[in-house]
Design a binder for these strands. Structure first.
Lengths: 341, 341
DNA sequence: ATTTTAATTTTACGCGCGGCAAGTTTTCCC
DNA sequence: GGGAAAACTTGCCGCGCGTAAAATTAAAAT
């Protein structure tokens, strides 16, 4: 390694025998300098491991390569997974993603939006908290910075978003469950954190009515993002009180189902569609852990790939000048049949 | 709201009738300006919602309030949880945390360390990839920037870290399992991603020998961070081949155990310590999902609170000038008895 | 009311880099 | 070899703010 510590681009330009603007050009686009100079720079780069300061770079650029990714709750592997997917797409497209989690907290979400303004991002991919979001703050943000909303809509605002066709999810699995056994009861949180839950409930009701069945909804008490706990407690209570009219339970989402499965287990109920099982349980999302429940959870898979791809590509188009899409793009779910139902 | 958009501190100082440095002082410490000027600033703040650019602030500060938090794999709820805990502590202490995940990838971990240099952080809390880390890169980083290593050590380097007393974990649960039934076999990944696994294996062997039992180790093939999958596949194979010499399996970590429980379920083995159960399964970590397996997983709980608290406090002391601790600080595990063993 | 002193505000420069204009050198091509 | 194009250098300003030193002001003391 080199003898002196390189502190900035000026010093680095000096040791490579070039002017700073030339070096700057190189870092902006290595192909934009003569190959002989490129060689010299890269030789110097070997000796002194210098890298431009990323935040200084973006200080005075009209268009940065920064992209912000915001999710509501990173401790949920679903969001961790989709965030990773989107991050990778940004990197591949030459952007510099930064990931933020609101941790289920409105104040934090607002802080993140403020931080993002400082970052001068070329664009932002935002999965809002939903019901708990500060709608006006999000609206202002979208007006100022190219933003793609995904996963959840903000119903108060009329903004387009990219996500799953939630009513279709419920209809798909209701059809399946009715075809293969007793019609499902719908198990959900009393106060869901985002509008997706409402759309799933509506889809359930619609599908049941279409099949001539009476919808039965069971609600679990509890707030926040600890869905498993809510599913466990609410499920145990509902089971004990005999609230489920049939032997089939469709949960509003997989995490709730995971908790509910534990409630079944603790109540001594064998779960599954096989002979000898007392109850069938299905979820919605195909959460990363759904494959590993006991028994493995039958569910409707969100199209992670399509959502993250479409969200990223939409943002890239917006960065290139395209307007914010007027209409939401919703992807259909795919039935994942496992043992639980 | 105000009439014009405030673009920077200069403009904001103008509309509040003060000089920029005075306003700057206010933002650095509202108590450092005369109360009459503070009133004027806060009045202007009401009218025009201005906030200093966070990245410009840190451009020319000798000591910033930035803190970096790096975890190896954020899609693991364990890391998501501990990261959230540490983030909160940093915020409470007046720092500005930024969270990064290496996503199990060495190149990404190195990129993150480079980004962090640009951030000019006051300090960094780093949970390294472990075996997959670029030891020399981490070493250089620690030499340049106050860094607290947590969760996993870097054995190649002699650096202190903050984490769990892994041998104690295994010894604790081995004692319990032997006391209450057949001695456990140890189920682990063939090529674990960090040194904690090795320490747990050593703890297992030591505890078994002390009890006069012969250690039996079963290894699951597979690389990477998809532990559940590895536990499921490796577990199914080991069960099919009768590799477990006793009816008790101690998994190297909870995620592996979650996969293994699914393997048991699919093999039709009832898990638990209750009559009628064919196999007992225990994990280590008290992963956020361990409570929600079927049956709920008996495990050894990492002291999340203590680790994150001690890591954060150590970093704050280092930022205030204390040297990097010479010795690791390891917290004991707590036995969490559930139904699986 | 005047001086002393402490608090506050200005002035002036710096951080690490982008970017533009004008001038100089290199390279390429006929 | 001459001329034009391409690449590079010099010089300077800008981004949004921190910060030390100087100048000013306000509060306290006499």
């Amino acid at each position: 390694m080199g003898t002196k510590k390189i502190r900035n681009m000026e010093e680095f330009a000096a040791v490579s025998g070039l002017s700073r603007p030339t070096v700057s050009k190189y870092f902006h686009d290595p192909g934009s300098v003569r190959s002989s100079t490129r060689t010299r720079i890269e030789a110097a780069l070997e000796k002194y491991d210098y890298r431009p300061n990323i935040f200084a770079i973006n200080q005075n650029r009209k268009l940065t390569k920064n992209v912000g990714i915001v999710v509501p709750y990173l401790a949920d592997p679903f969001f961790a997974e989709i965030a990773r997917n989107i991050e990778q797409r940004c990197i591949n497209a030459g952007y510099r993603p930064t990931l933020y989690s609101a941790h289920g907290n409105q104040a934090l979400e607002n802080d993140i939006l403020d931080s993002l303004r400082s970052l001068k991002p070329a664009g932002v991919l935002l999965a809002p908290l939903g019901r708990a979001s500060d709608a006006s703050a999000v609206e202002k943000f979208c007006a100022d910075i190219p933003t793609v909303l995904f996963d959840s809509s903000l119903e108060a605002l009329g903004l387009a978003y990219i996500g799953s066709d939630n009513p279709q999810f419920s209809m798909l699995i209701v059809d399946y469950l009715c075809r293969t056994g007793e019609p499902p009861c719908f198990f959900e949180m009393a106060t869901p954190s985002n509008p997706n839950a409402n759309k799933r409930r509506a889809g359930y009701i619609h599908a049941m009515q279409r099949l001539g069945q009476e919808p039965k909804i069971v609600k679990a008490a509890g707030e926040g993002w600890n869905f498993e706990e809510i599913g466990l407690r609410g499920g145990a209570k509902a089971l004990a009180e005999g609230q489920f009219a049939t032997n089939t339970v469709l949960c509003s989402n997989d995490r709730l189902a995971i908790g509910f499965l534990t409630a079944c287990c603790e109540a001594g109920l064998r779960v599954g569609h096989e002979p000898g099982c007392r109850i069938r349980v299905a979820g919605q999302d195909d959460h990363p852990f759904a494959r590993y429940t006991c028994p493995p959870l039958t569910t409707v898979a969100q199209d992670y790939e399509a959502i993250s791809r479409h969200a990223a590509e939409t943002l890239f188009r917006m960065i290139d000048g395209a307007p914010m899409p007027k209409d939401s793009k919703l992807f259909e779910g795919r039935l994942v049949m496992r043992v639980s139902a």
